[in-house]
Amino acid sequence: MIVDKLENASLYVNMNKEMERAFEFLKNTDIQKLSDGKYEIDSDNVYASVQSYETKDKSEKKFESHEKYIDIQYIVKGKEFIEWSPIQNLSVEEAYSDEKDVIFYKDGKLSSKINLEDNYFCIFFPNDGHKPGCTFDKPMNIKKVVLKIKIS
């Protein structure tokens, strides 16, 4: 798991061959003008999901992880926290869905709170359980982009 500001994205582009495309999309697209939905960047290798929602109490959210994709979760506008835990510390609540590339988990014993606001991102790898969309200090409307990068 990595947390940083978009201005430092160049530090991470060599981690995966598609990472650079994902960060270019964030830097070169006027995301404020995009409607919610899926935007292909490189077929199913890299795509963006623009989302708008109201944060919820962490008790209403579930930990998740993905096997086929790395997530970059970027806050365009607003504040939320994402709870993080290594999947080894979590127990499966809903088995892996190949179609949706997601496993859901019950809360575990060990987790960390990641506070995010405008222009911050988190990178989550397959071993990173994450519970996004949690209320930071009060329920808030969020605009966010989740970039999916296929693991090669």
Rank of each mutant, 00 (worst) to 15 (best):
I2K: 09
K5E: 14
E7P: 07
N8Q: 05
N8S: 08
N8W: 01
A9E: 06
A9S: 15
A9F: 12
S10D: 14
Y12W: 04
V13Q: 02
V13S: 03
N14F: 04
N14C: 01
E18H: 15
M19N: 06
M19A: 13
M19D: 13
E20C: 02
E20D: 03
E20I: 02
A22V: 00
E24L: 15
F25P: 02
K27A: 13
D30V: 12
K33F: 08
K33S: 15
K33A: 12
L34W: 05
S35G: 08
S35Q: 09
K38N: 11
E40W: 00
E40C: 04
E40I: 00
I41H: 08
I41V: 12
S43F: 13
N45K: 12
N45Q: 09
N45F: 07
N45W: 04
Y47T: 04
A48F: 13
V50Q: 02
V50R: 04
S52Q: 14
Y53Q: 07
E54S: 13
E54I: 14
K56T: 05
D57A: 06
S59G: 08
K61V: 09
K62R: 10
K62L: 14
K62C: 12
S65F: 13
S65W: 08
S65L: 13
E67V: 05
K68F: 08
Y69R: 09
I70A: 02
I70R: 00
I70C: 04
I70V: 07
Q73N: 04
Q73W: 02
Y74S: 00
Y74D: 00
K77W: 09
K77A: 10
G78F: 05
F81N: 11
F81R: 10
W84G: 09
W84N: 10
I87S: 12
I87E: 12
N89M: 09
E93F: 14
E94P: 06
E94N: 14
S97V: 06
K100I: 04
D101G: 10
I103T: 15
F104D: 10
Y105W: 14
K106H: 14
K106M: 09
K106V: 06
D107W: 11
D107S: 15
D107Q: 15
G108L: 15
K109W: 09
S111K: 11
K113A: 00
K113M: 01
K113Q: 01
I114Y: 09
N115R: 13
N115W: 10
N115Y: 15
L116P: 05
L116T: 14
N119C: 05
N119A: 07
Y120A: 08
Y120D: 09
C122P: 01
C122H: 01
I123D: 08
F124P: 02
F124V: 00
F124K: 04
F125S: 05
F125D: 04
N127P: 03
D128K: 06
H130K: 06
P132R: 04
P132Y: 03
G133Y: 03
G133M: 03
T135G: 03
F136E: 11
F136L: 11
F136T: 02
D137N: 09
K138W: 00
P139Q: 01
I142E: 02
K143D: 05
K143P: 03
V145N: 01
V145F: 02
V146L: 03
V146C: 06
L147C: 01
K148G: 01
I149R: 04
I149P: 02
I149A: 03
K150W: 00
